[in-house]
Every structure is written in structure tokens, then in C-alpha cells.
Amino acid sequence: MEGPKPKLKLAVYWAAACGGCCVSVLDVHEKLFDVIAAADFVFWPIALDIKYKDVEEMPDNHIDLTLFNGAVRNSENEHMAKLLRKKSRILVAYGSCSHLGGIPGLANFSTKEDIFHRVYKECESVINPENIRPLSEYEVQEGILELPVFYNDVRSLAQIVEVDYYIPGCPPQTERLIEVFVAIVTGAELPPKGSVIGAETKAQCDECIRKKTENKRIKKFYRPWEISDDGETCFMEQGVLCMGPATRAGCGYRCIKGNAPCRGCYGPSSDVTDPGAKMMSAIASIIDEKEPEEIKRVLEDIVDPAGVFYRFSLPSSLIRRKLS
């Protein structure tokens, strides 16, 4: 008779993250009992008191599955990405930040110097007359204290180490995570390495139940609060920018269910190099003007194209940072 199957060893780690992805894992609620019947968490800073040195001492490939969330912002994030790659059999980029760069990726519009100046000198709630800045090494009388080096660029996980799978979303939908977990536990055949899992392959519009017609013609773009949303018609047809056409489905169009337009956190559908560029192409196609001056007038309402179209994906887009 076979003995009980060994429990899977799971790790969840956050780099430049907000904690939302860890919460999305905790959101399995009482299903946590089923999870821990099949798996042990061996590293999860938000929930367990396991230290970095404990991870360093693990043998290679000791961890069966690591969900790595957060973008790579500094040398500690990079170190942990490489360490967890070594210690994990399967490394998953979990959530928008590790998948594409995420919201912290918007810092790629600035340089390290600009960010430090704003945060440590200029910020309205900061009093720092001596212009103290974080240093990667600082000598105190007892010895040397270290802090990670803050890089000029934010990176996604795949730009640092080889990633086995991507679970997109900000945060990913917990139900999809459970599906992935069940597939791994039951030994189902996993898709090819490098796939996006826990999501669909088509665009949001495929799932979204708002009424759409063939007739998308925009004469003006509105911010969501500028219109009286009828709750039924496609946002784009009401003139509100919705990233649905360029965004992968799989989240259950949850923002749209909450009467907010999609922001694109699930990233592009399959085989799209640069989702923001595709969205720009789509938006421009439906503007209902022909004269350059009129087109420019319509475009004036898109005040921040880079921020809107690349809100979650700036570091992994074609032009991944602002040129200095």
C-alpha cells in the first residue's frame, strides 16, 4: 500500500509589493484547511516567521512552488528572486508586479535621483534639513549597517530570472489561484513553461456582459465621473476609456461589475508584445474625426497616455522606461 503523498512545499514572497497578492492568497478563507492538508508553507513573511537565512540554508529545488509577487526595485528584491529561483522547483510570477512590473513600475518615468529628491527632501511631510539619504552601507560605532541598493529601473521577475508560469492580476482572482493549486496537487498536466495560467486567453470584452454594438465612435473621452453611466452599455461606447479590449480575461470582469472601467491589470492576451501599443492603436481607430485639429482636440482628454495604457506594464513594454 502506498504511503501518504508527501505534502507540497509552498512559498510566497513579496518584493516591491503592496501586500494585496498575499491577501489574495489568504482570501482562500476556510479552504486554507484544504490547502494545508496538501501543502506546507515553508516561507511566507506575512504569515510565518521564517527568515532569509533559513531560505539560504534550504537545498536547491527544496520548495515545490513559489508564488513571487512584487516588482524588482532594489538589490534585495533581485537577490531574493535569484535565491528563490534556485530553491524552487516551480517559480510563478504572481500578480501584475512580478508579471509585468505593476504599479511600482510607473517609477520608470523617473530616475533614482528624482525619486530620492522628492521622497527625502521635497515631500511636503518631510523635514530633513541635513539632507539625509538612505545609503547601501553606513558605519555606526558597532559596525556596518546595510540597506539594499535602489536601482534606477524597476524590473519584472522575468527580466531577472527564468519564470515558469505567470498568474496575472492586481491581485489575481483567488478562485483562479485555487484552480491552479488543485491542478498542481492532483498532478494534472501543466501547460508549457512560460505560460500565463489562472486566466483566459481572449480579451476582457469576450467575458464582459455590457451591451456592445458594432458602432464604436468616440467624439470625446470622458472621465468616469463625468458621465451618467447607465450600467449596461459598454464603457467605450459611452466615451470612457476601458482597457478591456487589450486586457486578458479571467478576473470575471470584476471592476466592470463594480461599474468601473477596466484598468488592464491582467495584462495582454496571448502573443501580444506590447499591450499599451495595441490599446493605443485600438483607441485611435475609433476616434470619430478626420481633421488633425479635431483629432488633437479629442486626444486632449487623454492627458497621460503612457500612464493609462501602461499603468501595470511599463517595465515590460517595448520602451520600458523614460529616456533620461
Binding site: 499599451g276 481607430s285 488633437k296 497616455p305 503612457a306 495604457f309 520602451i319 523614460k322
Partner: peptide, 19 residues
């Protein structure tokens, strides 16, 4: 016309990226 509209939006983006 499509090309023109795409171009004008792309121009805004390209400037934002420092090109």
C-alpha cells in the same frame, strides 16, 4: 485616417517617454 489618428496619439506617448 486611421494612420493619422494613431500617429497623433503615438506622438503624445513618445514625447512622454522622453523621445
Amino acid at each position: 485616417y486611421r494612420c493619422l489618428r494613431r500617429f497623433l496619439l503615438l506622438q503624445k506617448y513618445v514625447v512622454q517617454m522622453g523621445i
